[in-house]
């Protein structure tokens, strides 16, 4: 092992330019994939918040007693798909409407105090906001008979769901394309780097080196380059993340709410190190094996 480390250090010293090129290309590939992962992570957060925003408005029949309302609320709260139920009185509904659309105030005054009905605002738990689950839930509470109408923005939910499905498919396609492009970029560059050292491989073979002896420093160098590239890529992505945060703070606050633009999660950073090392080791291993196969 000591000898392998020493031979690896010697190879990097002798071929510094090639080591820099390999590390640079792995870095570029990781930045590409990392950027995609970061965008995907944040888009998923936004879409997740949209999904969480889905709630059901159940408009109560006028004239119901407070006890009846409480009983219905308790019934709803006991259901596993319900996260929260909030009672909104006629007055609260009117105040909410006037606050958002002040010009409607005279119209509401003319219609009288019960122009807007009291309602129960039902928030559902994650996983119960698909169009099918929502439709089933709404159908079941309509049967209760306490409500004039139940509204959950069916069209909006269906659109969001379709949009999410399309986006998810696009993400997989684009992610695969970026991944494959990064793989080709790294594999071909390291192939050229190994090609530049073909004389060394041939000489080692001719003086009796085993394939394992020849491969070992290349593999170690690939792992080191992968780790260095992951560090560089993380630094670049972090800088880009901070830059975007400071320049686009207002837009991001609007789009992402209080959460702001997120960096990759800890396991994403770990995955970049793993990917960098796998890329470095795999590409070096493959390229050297290919050359050794051609050598006498």
């Amino acid at each position: 092992m000591k000898s392998t480390v020493w031979r690896t250090v010697r190879a990097v010293r002798e071929h510094t330019y090639l080591a820099v090129v390999s590390t640079g290309v792995i870095t570029a590939a990781l930045v590409l994939v990392g950027m995609f992962a970061m965008v995907t992570t944040n888009v998923r957060l936004v879409l997740g918040s949209w999904e969480r925003d889905v709630h059901v408005s159940a408009y109560l029949r006028p004239g119901g007693s407070a006890d009846a309302h409480t009983a219905v609320m308790q019934m709803l709260q006991s259901r596993p798909e319900v996260a929260a139920v909030k009672y909104v009185s006629e007055a609260e509904a009117r105040a909410w409407m006037v606050e958002r659309t002040p010009e409607l105030a005279p119209v509401l005054d003319e219609l009288g105090g019960d122009a807007l009905p009291a309602s129960l605002e039902i928030t559902l738990r994650d996983g119960h906001t698909t169009p099918e689950a929502l439709a089933a839930f709404v159908g079941s509470i309509r049967e209760v008979g306490s409500f004039d109408d139940v509204d959950y923005g069916q069209e909006w939910v269906t659109r969001v769901d379709t949009f999410l499905s399309v986006l998810s498919a696009l993400g997989v396609a684009l992610g695969s394309f970026i991944g494959i492009a990064a793989l080709f970029l790294v594999a071909n560059t390291i192939h050229l780097v190994v090609y530049a050292r073909r004389d060394e491989l041939e000489i080692m073979r001719l003086v009796g080196a085993t394939d394992r002896y020849i491969l070992a420093p290349f593999v170690l160098e690939g792992a080191a380059q992968g780790a260095a590239a992951a560090t560089l890529a993380n630094a670049l992505l972090w800088a880009a993340h901070r830059g975007l945060l400071s320049r686009l703070q207002e837009v991001l606050a609007l789009a992402l709410g209080g959460e702001g633009l997120r960096y990759l999660p800890w396991w994403g950073v770990g995955a970049m190190y793993a990917a960098g090392m796998v890329l470095g080791v795999g590409a070096s291993w493959g390229a050297v094996r290919r050359f050794l196969g051609r050598l006498p």
Partner: peptide
Amino acid sequence: QHRLPQLRR
């Protein structure tokens, strides 16, 4: 093939 290094040594 894997014994060739021995020969070359």
